[in-house]
């Protein structure tokens, strides 16, 4: 098991190096960083001086190593648009995005898994069919449409929930959280539902399909033949076997949530990484873009790493050590 994890960590590091390379190329070769930094009236000498000071005349590998060294220390340069260190911007924005992603992932799991189990166990019940039909709408409605609909109903018409922003936030060290105030929770409800709805329906349908598959297997039949209770069969034997593919998809989709949060954050003016990225794209703010790229990939890679480890925890067949093969 230790070897397996080490192997996965190594693979993750490799992926991150490739991503860093892309980010490096982005920040150095998309346009001329110098002309983005200096004003119109800078002389050629000023430019050459700056180029030399920034080390842009060094060979590409040297620059790349320096880039990685800085990135490891959280230094991605200075935002062209806001003239502030990217790391500061990210530190301000990251909590908002992570909280949004976390709340919507929990929402999707807590609602999606039980509904998936329910619709699999009571396949012919009319309520299950209703849930499935509605979930189809959840899969096919684009995120921004859901967001705007929610704003229209709950903010404009009913005036129950705020239509934008994070509400009141509390600072805990460097982390600002909206989850400690009622106002913050009121603000996060709609963005979280908007962001999580697609994942919820996906999880629901996946859990249902996997559960139906598992319920047809021989070991479930044999468990029934041994007179085990429905509870033990459905929530013990069947559910545990259902979880392996579900964990895969959920792990991949936490990365997906971060990607989709760009749209949700724009709709709700949520002050997170997504909004920062969209604004950075509009202004060709390359340091911010490359920092976002690296950070989003890092979260992707980390969730995948966690998924791989969870596999091993759940499925004994992957624990290759101590493998005993006995004859009859």
């Amino acid at each position: 098991m230790g070897f397996l994890i080490l192997n996965r960590v190594f693979q993750a590091a490799l992926v991150m190096i490739v991503v860093a390379m892309a980010a490096f190329v982005l920040s150095n070769y998309v346009g001329d960083p110098i002309s983005n930094m200096v004003g119109q009236e800078a002389t050629q000498e000023d430019r050459d001086q700056l180029r030399e000071d920034l080390g842009l005349n060094d060979p590409a590998p040297v620059q790349f190593v320096r880039f990685i060294g800085n990135a490891l220390q959280g230094d991605f340069g200075i935002s062209y648009r806001l003239q502030r260190p990217v790391s500061d911007l990210v530190a301000e924005r990251l909590p908002a995005t992570l909280e949004l992603v976390m709340v919507s992932a929990i929402f999707a799991l807590v609602v999606g898994i039980p509904l998936g189990i329910f619709t699999a166990l009571y396949r012919t019940f009319w309520g299950s069919r209703l849930i499935l039909t509605v979930s189809l709408a959840g899969v096919s409605l684009p995120t921004f449409v859901v967001g705007i609909l929610l704003i229209y109903v709950f903010s404009v018409t009913l005036q129950w929930l705020p239509s934008f922003g994070r509400g009141e936030t509390t600072a805990l060290g460097g982390w600002t959280t909206g989850l400690l105030t009622v106002d913050g929770w009121r603000a996060i409800i709609m963005p979280a539902i908007t962001l999580g709805l697609y994942q919820l329906t996906l999880i629901l349908r996946l859990v249902r399909a996997e559960m139906l598959e598992v319920l047809r297997t021989d070991y479930i039949k044999f468990a029934r033949a041994r007179g085990l209770t429905n509870r033990a069969i459905n929530f013990g034997h069947a559910l545990k076997n259902t979880m392996i593919p579900v964990i895969t998809i959920v792990g991949l989709n936490i990365g997906g949530l971060i990607a989709f949060s760009i749209v949700t954050e724009t709709v709700f003016q949520w002050p997170g990484m997504g909004l920062l990225f969209v604004q950075a794209v509009q202004f060709a703010d390359v340091p911010v873009m490359s920092a976002y790229l690296v950070l989003a990939s890092l979260i992707f890679v980390l969730t995948n790493l966690v998924v791989d480890i969870l596999y091993v925890v759940i499925d004994p067949r992957l624990r290759t050590e101590r493998r005993v093969k006995a004859g009859v």
Binding site: T217, D218, Y219, K221, F222, A223, R224, A225, R226, G227, L228, T229, H237, K240, N241, I314, D315, P316, R317
Partner: peptide, 25 residues
């Protein structure tokens, strides 16, 4: 019926490779 299954009547299926839950000892 559940109380009879596994107690008064036991059943053995065809495929031993798939009759046991792979995730439980």
């Amino acid at each position: 019926l559940r109380r009879i299954r596994g107690a008064a009547i036991g059943m053995i299926f065809q495929d031993p490779l798939t009759s046991l839950n792979p995730l439980y000892t």
